[in-house]
């Protein structure tokens, strides 16, 4: 009964083999490309329509696009402060990418964020941004002196605190989305046919939509907070 229960990462496109270990494009790569393709097409579509945008929006599409951009700038400004408005151009697309990849569970794809590689890569970008902007705004000595605050004996604890950020960021997103994927896979394989009519939608509502949107919001807001507190 549990033979067809699989939520693991398969490798549809095998490229080459190195002493018994196959390398190639896994389902995560394929789904990531799908998500990025969708976002790029949306971007190109907006650019095509950009010509006939007017200062007073008359088409619903323009209102939607402006809502998206303004909403995200307001969100960035409220989290990082007025002077960091430019970060919304970076964190907006990241927000959309994570949101869309969390929601791919609805259309039957395996979410790319249910793979530690994706989430760890995303949290590493935050980690290196924190270091870069910290050093840029406070100077090399100034920023790393903070690891000895308030009393030098706390240095190892501060270092672990700093290193634990990318770990907790990536594991939080990964764990939640993987948990949701496992539950849905279990539900679909185990339940008899009549239970598959109404109830999965409720489960999807909780895991894919509620948890997906919440985790996206948490990941981006935490990243912004870490970067802006490094720049303080």
């Amino acid at each position: 009964m549990d033979s067809n229960l699989d939520f693991g990462i398969k490798m549809p496109i095998k490229l080459f083999e190195v002493d018994g270990q196959w390398f190639g494009f896994t389902t995560t790569h394929v789904n990531t490309v799908i998500v990025i393709l969708a976002l790029t097409l949306f971007g190109l579509f907006v650019r095509a329509k950009l010509k006939n945008f007017k200062t007073i929006p008359d088409t619903k599409f323009q209102v939607f696009v402006e809502l998206l951009v303004d909403g995200f700038e307001a969100f960035t400004m409220s989290t990082m402060g007025e002077k960091n408005k430019k970060f919304s151009m970076f964190y907006g697309p990241i927000f959309l990418f994570i949101l869309l990849s969390n929601l791919t569970g609805l259309v039957g794809l395996r979410p790319p964020t249910a793979d530690i590689a994706t989430t760890f890569a995303l949290s590493l970008t935050t980690f290196f941004m924190v270091q870069m902007y910290g050093v840029r705004s406070k100077g090399f000595g100034g920023y790393y002196k903070e690891l000895f605050e308030p009393v030098p004996v706390l240095f190892p604890l501060n270092v672990i605190g700093e290193l634990s950020n990318p770990v907790s960021l990536s594991f939080r997103l990964f764990g939640n989305i993987l948990g949701g994927t496992i539950i849905m896979a279990l539900y679909y394989t185990m339940m008899p046919w009549f239970a598959l009519i109404g109830i999965p939608s409720v489960l999807h509502l909780y895991f894919d939509i509620f948890a997906g949107v919440l985790q996206t919001f948490i990941f981006v807001m935490l990243s912004m907070t870490f970067v802006s507190s490094a720049m303080e």
């Binding site: 907790s168 939080r172 990964f174 764990g175 939640n176 948990g179 985790q215 948490i218 935490l222």
Partner: peptide, 8 residues
């Protein structure tokens, strides 16, 4: 969400 991490 931050409190959830150790559960994860």
């Amino acid at each position: 969400a931050v409190a959830q991490t150790t559960g994860i």
